[in-house]
């Protein structure tokens, strides 16, 4: 167990280092000079050169990289050009918002997809199930920025019941969470359906039914609790993916999370901020995934860590 955790942490650290190094090199190869964005509009060439020295952008990429790594290990990710504050702190300020949105979206997905999947399993291969299946596929096929704008137009412009953007009250969470959840319902409900069908047709359930246990308890007690583990894992994995994947929805709803921050950082060529955002989101997603993998054997004693093939 301990060796497994150490090994996984080592791998995670390696992936994060690889990611951040790739990003470091990529953004320095990019055209566009952050010094011009940083300087006054009428700055001279000398001013620009001076700013570049200040920002530590005057050396070769390699020497910049060495400095960057040195700072990284002391927890210093540089100062954001546009916020003029430590980049790490700017990102950390935004992280709770992204986590809130991702958490709300995952819970909403579960609340919709679980009953729907069970419903579909009990009517497997009927016309109505196909209909429900097609509806979830349609929900999955909507570009999230479009469904977001549509929801906004209907629920905060035509019927002004919900706030349109930002995070001022909790009701501001409703529309973004729905928009994200729409994409996930198809995947999760299909998984629930598959697990439930395989449990409902398994011999143990026939035995339980022969013992006279009620249909309701068979479905919600027996089959559901045995389907729970893969479904929970899938939900956790979706949550991890959302931590770095809700960029578009955050932009549409002007949500003050990490996703809208990274778009802004890219537009202003804010090197330290881009690096810090990628580092933090990648690390978060990887750690959440690791946590899920560690919880797995607690939920299902048949699973041994490090023995099973990687998922």
């Amino acid at each position: 167990m301990t060796t497994y955790i150490v090994k996984r942490l080592g791998q995670s650290a390696l992936v994060i280092l690889l990611t951040i190094s790739t990003v470091f090199v990529l953004i320095r190869m990019a055209p566009g000079d952050p010094a011009t964005a940083f300087a006054a509009p009428n700055a001279t060439t000398e001013d620009l050169a001076q700013i570049r020295t200040q920002l530590g952008l005057d050396g070769s990429i390699l020497s910049q990289y060495v400095t960057f790594l040195g700072q990284l290990f002391t927890g210093d990710l540089g100062t954001s050009y546009s916020f003029r504050a430590p980049a790490f702190e700017v990102v950390l300020d935004r992280v709770p918002y992204t986590i809130t949105l991702a958490l709300a979206a995952v819970m909403l997905t579960a609340v919709i997809a679980l009953p729907l999947g069970i419903w579909m399993a009990r009517r497997a291969d009927t016309g109505r199930e196909t209909g429900a299946n097609i509806v979830t596929i349609a929900a999955q096929s909507m570009p999230e920025f479009w469904s977001g704008i549509m929801l906004l137009t209907v629920f905060s412009v035509l019927l002004p019941v919900l706030p349109s953007s930002g995070f001022t009250t909790w009701s501001g969470l409703v529309l973004p969470a729905i928009t994200v959840a729409l994409l996930q319902v198809a995947l999760i409900s299909r998984l629930v359906r598959r697990e439930m069908v395989s449990n409902l047709t398994s011999p143990y359930l026939t035995v339980a039914r022969a013992h006279g246990i009620g249909e309701r308890r068979l479905v919600w007690g027996y089959a559901l609790s045995n389907s729970a583990i893969p479904v929970l894992t899938a939900l956790g994995t979706r949550f991890a993916a959302m931590l770095n994947g809700v960029v578009v929805v955050e932009v549409v709803f002007n949500w003050p999370g990490v996703g809208s921050l990274v778009v802004r950082a890219l537009e202003t060529r804010d090197y330290p901020l881009i690096q810090a955002t990628v580092l933090v989101t990648a690390a978060l997603a990887i750690l959440v995934q690791l946590l899920i993998d560690l919880l797995y054997p607690l939920l299902d004693p048949r699973v041994r860590l490090g023995k099973a093939t990687a998922r």
Binding site: T19, I27, N244, V262, Q289
Partner: peptide, 24 residues
């Protein structure tokens, strides 16, 4: 396999935006 795993844990859309910003 390592490449596949590494890519799964990357913030994909951010990287895509980055590359497009870089190469035009």
């Amino acid at each position: 396999s390592r490449l596949l795993e590494a890519q799964m844990s990357l913030p994909l859309l951010m990287m895509l935006l980055l590359v497009v910003a870089l190469f035009g």
